[in-house]
Each structure stands twice: as structure tokens, then as C-alpha cells.
Amino acid sequence: MSEGTLDGATAGLSRTTKVRAVQAAVLVSLVVSVEVGPRTGVVGRTTLIPLSVMVEELLGLLGSGQLTPHIVQTFAAVFGAFALAVVTGVPAGIVLWRVDTLKQVLDPYLLIYYAVPFFAFYPLLISILGLGIAPILAISWGFSVVIVVTNTASGLAQIPEAYTAAGRDMNLSRWQMLRYVYLPASVPYVFTGLKLGFVYALIGTIASEFILAESGLGWLISYNYNNFDVPGMYAAMLLVISLALAVNTVLARVESRLYQRAVA
């Protein structure tokens, strides 16, 4: 029996290493093919440029400060929309969790919310608010807020009965319950909603800038595309994708740490 578990453990370890190794190989071959493909002419230079050229172009643009206003614009929109989504979404989620009837009424509509091709509203918002940061903030907020609301509501509903019972035994007031029991216990679940909300705000901002805007990283990609500046376009693309991957990695790390703490 003990031999069996030992075998299982070492087999599991080497398997994890194997999985990691193959994952690394897949990613490396992807990166290498972006470099080698255009260099050897397998992919036309008008379609794709080598990764090293993209990096060089990106570093040059960053160094010259040409990207700074676009980075500032995009960050302002993403963080602005995300802040709005948190300020409105978390309280709305609490209300939804408290008032069960309201949650039941809205459930099917909340599910269908993300089924709608959301960016169709962007032209409407531009027509009403004019071109600028306002319609981008509005669409990114709208794209982000509902995932915050639904995750806050379902996160609060997942709190173990024992916690609330203990709080009630201590005769905590409603406010104290919320402050000392519900909110701390629901942190990891609510954080999942915030993580997705931030990613959605980022996607919403980049996508709307890409469709129609006056500045921003998404706009820069489409502007460079329309002006046949292929290196500039790929540099901006690389920046946006690296930013998105970095944000995702960091938030996923924090999230798994929060869940571990909740279990411990």
C-alpha cells in the first residue's frame, strides 16, 4: 500500500515535469515560428514580421515616447471603467444576493446579457456622447459590470453556513455581519468577479478603440493597419497582448493565493 502511494507520487511528479516540458516546447516552437516563418519566407513579410523586428520596433517606439499618450489614454479608460464597474457592481451584487426574488427575476436576463454582440452599442454611444473617452468608458463599464454583479452575488451565496451561524450566535448586527462575516468570507469569490471585470474592461476598451477612436493602443493598431505601417502595427499588437497576458497571470496568481487562504 505504502509502496503503491510512493510509486504514484514519483510518477505524478515526473508527469508534472513532463507536462511542463511539453508546454514549454509548444510555446517555444510558437515563438520560434513567428521569428523563423517570416525570415525564411514561409510567411510573406507583408503578412507577418519576425518577432525580433516587432520587439525592436516596440522598444524604439517606447523609447521615443511616441506610445506614451496612447498608453495613458488606454490605461485611463480601462481603470476608469473598471473603477466604475466595481463601485456600481459590488453594491448591486450585494442587493441581488439579499433580495432573492430580484435575483430570480433577473437571472435569465443576466445570462443573456453577454450573448448580445455588445459592441453593436458602441456606434449608438458615439452618436449620443460624441467621439472621445466617454463612449469608451460607457461601453467598457457596461461590458465589465455585469460579471462583477453576478460573481459578487453568487460569491456571497457560497459562504459556509457555519460562518453565518457563528456570527448570529455572537448577536452581530446586520451591519456587523456584513462587515465581519460576509465580506471577508466572500473575498476570493468576489475577487474572481473583479478579475474577470478587469479583463473585460481591458477588452472593451481595446476593442472600441480599435473600431473607432482618436487615440489609444487599440486605435494605434487600426491606424497603423490603415496606413500600411506593418512594423508599427505589430509593435502595438505585441504590447497589447503582452499587457493582457501579464495582467491575466498576475490576477490569476492573486486569485489562487486567496482561495488557498480561504481553505486554510
Binding site: V19, V22, Q23, T46, T47, A236, L245, N248
Partner: peptide, 29 residues
């Protein structure tokens, strides 16, 4: 089991980048 362990994080990672930025590549091709 092995290949799903290898590719699951890769697929989910790709799933979460703003794909809209890649649209010019589709237009090129």
C-alpha cells in the same frame, strides 16, 4: 489525460487575450 493537461492552460490563456487586436492578420490573409 496527458495532452489535456498540456493544452488546457494554453487554450485558456489564448482565450483570454483581446482577440480583436489580431484582426488585421486575418485581413492580410
Amino acid at each position: 489525460d496527458f495532452w489535456s493537461d498540456v493544452f488546457e492552460p494554453i487554450l485558456i490563456g489564448t482565450y483570454s487575450i483581446p482577440k480583436v487586436t489580431l484582426f488585421p492578420m486575418f485581413l492580410f490573409v
